[in-house]
Design a protein around this nucleic acid. Sequence first.
DNA 1: CGGTGTGAAGCGCTTCACAGCG
DNA 2: CGCTGTGAAGCGCTTCACACCG
Lengths: 184, 184
Amino acid sequence: MVSSELARMAKVTSSQVRRDLMALDIKGNPARGYDTKDLLDSIGRFLDGKRPEKVVLVGVGNLGRAILGFFHGRRPNLNIVAAFDRDPSKTGRVIHGYRCLPMEKLPEVVAREGVRVGILTVPASEAQKVATAMVGAGVVGILNFAPRCLALPEHVFVEDIDMTTSLEKVAFFTRPQGPPEEGR
Amino acid sequence: MVSSELARMAKVTSSQVRRDLMALDIKGNPARGYDTKDLLDSIGRFLDGKRPEKVVLVGVGNLGRAILGFFHGRRPNLNIVAAFDRDPSKTGRVIHGYRCLPMEKLPEVVAREGVRVGILTVPASEAQKVATAMVGAGVVGILNFAPRCLALPEHVFVEDIDMTTSLEKVAFFTRPQGPPEEGR
DNA sequence: CGGTGTGAAGCGCTTCACAGCG
DNA sequence: CGCTGTGAAGCGCTTCACACCG
């Protein structure tokens, strides 16, 4: 597989591809380009940890359930071990194949399973409190769907997904007159 | 409101704040910093169009429903006018306050309402087909939740939200040994 | 030749440093 | 004085250009 082909697929330039692969110390062959199997192997080794990552999800509302459904069965490397909610009408049940437990069980499960990553799908008003609880339990990485900036210790990695902002971005860049050239 | 305060809130540097505001031609006062009301006004004028943006959502699965619920009532500037699905058991009903219509109505609604933005929450296998249909109907901006790279005309703005990739990113950056320093 | 590997230049965003103003 | 406004420098990613190899 040749760099320009990879470039087209990823929508970047071919130099870009070659530089990035160079950074990972992946060598190609001037005659045949890069060996596909090698590529997959090397990138896989770079990205994946040795063992599947265990994940908890907190907040079994519409969005939480959707995500449980979304991950159900996919990505063997990302194992959702349990979902949590403070609403007793949701706990104790199995949703999209995942057990829903009360918040009180969070520390125990995180500790026992060695969970390091959490998905946060609670209302914005609860986000900070729940995030703090997750980190207290031992979580060190959070995928945050709540439209709130979380205040957490330095060592915690937070990735925000703000659907509203993303939608506004689309709206912005599709304005009739196009995006303002600069200034007002 | 003073630039360093804004900086702390946004987690950037104060120079950054001043430069960005400068780019929008927003002036502060050396004595009192920036006038809060002015700031909100200017940024609002820059971001928001004159009229609310109309949006359609296609794919009323778990995720689609979650998003309908998520936007329900919020953001008056982003108006979901209707949801679409090809499954007859979903169409004709009202979900989280939004009408769910059959795919066949998409062109008509988009044209009549002047919709320019679409949210795509169909399975990956359907994504390309549906995206093409949306663009054919007149949509020029797509918020794409399907883990698929869409092939669309140049002029269409696409924003991808790939939850799986985001979660993998969190997993990657929270590996016990931290992210590899570079190279393998 | 066609494609990789890579120094060197380019480019845009970020930070520094400081003049100037209230 | 403290904070804004801004030229200038810094920095990292991207692109160019081309030697080299099969």
